[in-house]
Design a protein around this nucleic acid. Structure first.
Lengths: 162, 162
DNA sequence: CGGTTCGTTCAATACGGATTGAACAAATGA
DNA sequence: TCATTTGTTCAATCCGTATTGAACGAACCG
């Protein structure tokens, strides 16, 4: 049965839009919003009906949310279906997302900048890159690496504060 | 003339991908990457040629970057064309983006949560929402508002550290 | 004034990824 | 064992938006 409450729909829509901004499917946010305001755990079918989306979307959406640690699968006695409930600690979710997604990305980025520098060095040695041009790029890339390093050093503190 | 250096292309691609993740057009990131590693300011046509994109894309892309404060328009003596250079202080760019984009969004979100609560109160009063259900939602939304408030209070500190 | 050179705008297209329907697999119960 | 319920997978579709070509306007030059 579709969600009737106008207020709940407002929140569901808002979380959906937030997820879209963050590069996640809108349905993922909608599912989390629905569960966040649901006193009982909901089955896949209840989620799909509640939001007016397909069972397939509900299935993939819940799986993404599970892998993000944003929802939990709970067992409802006397019921074969899977049921889901929201993990309501939003701060913990963000900390986790940082550790699992942002942090690894930043580490990879650091490495990528180093690769670029060594590629440029190689090109300079092969006379494929003007030395002056190289010097300029090196300066810029070093500044970038400095920034990244500084960012990574304050990140743990930041993680605590959330 | 298209960019030849493999190293520069690596960085251009990386910044393009980063922008895509952030919900910005890939070309915007590519333009910034190109300018970030360019000793001289470049004209629109040089940007378009260098990246193999259309003049139209270069035009809209530079405008977005200008509005973000990520590039500057510079005047090159004896040349009618507009020229662009990167603002290389990445930290300042991020701080600015936070102030201009993230902060306003968070403020609006705070307000939106309050709206949801009042909508739900109204629905409860109209017997459209079960009182127990309402109480649960209220609890959840209050927790959410608390989190937002806490986040906004540490944000200024965070801004300093970057 | 024409004729060029530039930059912007906008309707049309292209593209990536979200969403879905249908087929499938797994588990349950008669 | 077969029928039913439930969840997943995947190719096909849909949709939003990035990108483009072409037309336009503005500034400049002879």
């Amino acid at each position: 049965m579709a969600v009737r409450s106008k207020g709940k729909l407002q929140l569901i829509e808002a979380v959906g839009n937030l997820c879209r901004r963050l590069g996640l499917p809108r349905t993922v946010g909608q599912i989390y919003g629905l569960l966040y305001l649901s006193p009982q755990a909901l089955s896949l079918e209840e989620i799909a009906d509640g939001l007016g989306i397909s069972k397939a979307s509900a299935s993939t959406g819940t799986r993404q949310l599970l892998s993000l640690g944003a929802i939990r699968k709970v067992w409802v006695p006397g019921n074969r279906r899977d049921h889901f409930e929201a993990v309501p600690e939003v701060g913990a979710l963000i900390r986790n997302a940082y550790r699992e997604i942002v942090k690894p990305y930043l580490d990879a980025a650091q490495h990528r900048v180093e690769e670029v520098v060594s590629t440029l060095e190689h090109e300079r040695d092969q006379q494929d890159l003007d030395p002056e041009d190289f010097a300029f790029c090196q300066k810029r890339l070093e500044a970038l690496a400095r920034f990244q390093k500084n960012f990574q050093s304050v990140a743990p503190l930041l993680e605590k504060l959330l």
